[in-house]
Design a protein around this nucleic acid. Structure first.
Lengths: 141, 141
DNA sequence: TCCGTTGTTGCAAGTCGTTCGCAATAAGAC
DNA sequence: GTCTTATTGCGAACGACTTGCAACAACGGA
């Protein structure tokens, strides 16, 4: 774990226990977003509640963010990774496609200008149907 | 209840029981989206499971749609009403703002063109901060 | 109008994702 | 090494739904 990360983790009366350290390692090793359950499965020696608590602490510290899907568990991803990326999630097959966050910027600007509302576009994934699930029957979602 | 609605409800081996009829009435009386729990509260004589089941059936029939928020319970709204409207939901105060669905159309087109992904923009609400909650501390969401 | 089929309802229990209370453990400052 | 207190694990609780099951009641037909 990098010194920079350790410093971040220790800021604000924080300590680094067994669970926290392992959760950080798992997150850092992911190429993309992962669910809390995914982390739990990768860390059989760590209790589920500790994983959830660690994820929350790491989020407070700005190390990760979570993204909601229309249904089911949230996805966690390193903050710096998420900064420039948004997610499309297929409602049929569940696959996620990453798109540049910039694609949403004109919509964001428009909404802020017209409604004074600041979009938090990193906080939700865009649901829909991917190319290969176009012809599939509609899901129960 | 209109004849047109009754017909729709009776299509596909459906019957109209006490709960279903009342749920339809409540939905029709709403000026905007409502949660399942909101419907349940308005119908003390109807069981929660019947409300959920009715909402699901009505959704299959195309009478309502549900919209997910980043957190908490989904919102239900008449399909024809939702057709032209999308929702902004403030993560701080919870208020929802309706915006024309058309605002999302260029984004939708772009995503479909570039990724073959068809956005289901009616299925999620856009989270963020409304004008009056701009300066509030970030929520735990 | 009564009948029978089968969709609908209510209740309680179950599921999924996540949070919480609590006592035991262990970081890290001194 | 000591001591304070953050962190952990466990199990119970939670919110939002879903489901199994037996009782009930629509509605098409006789």
């Amino acid at each position: 774990m990098q010194e920079r990360t350790l410093e971040m983790l220790r800021s604000g009366n924080r300590r680094i226990g067994k669970a926290r350290r392992q959760v950080v390692d798992v997150l850092a090793a992911q190429p993309g977003p992962i669910t809390a359950d995914g982390v739990i499965d990768l860390l059989p020696g760590v209790s589920a509640s500790s994983v959830y608590r660690s994820l929350n602490v790491l989020e407070e510290l700005g190390y990760v963010r979570h993204v909601h899907l229309a249904h089911g568990a949230a996805l966690y991803e390193l903050t710096d990774r998420l900064a420039s990326v948004r997610h499309l999630v297929c409602e049929v097959c569940g696959n996620t496609i990453q798109i540049p966050a910039a694609l949403l910027s004109s919509l964001s600007r428009r909404i802020e200008r017209d409604y004074g509302f600041v979009l938090d576009s990193g906080h939700f994934a865009l649901p829909g149907r991917c190319a290969s699930c176009q012809r599939t029957e509609p899901g129960p979602h």
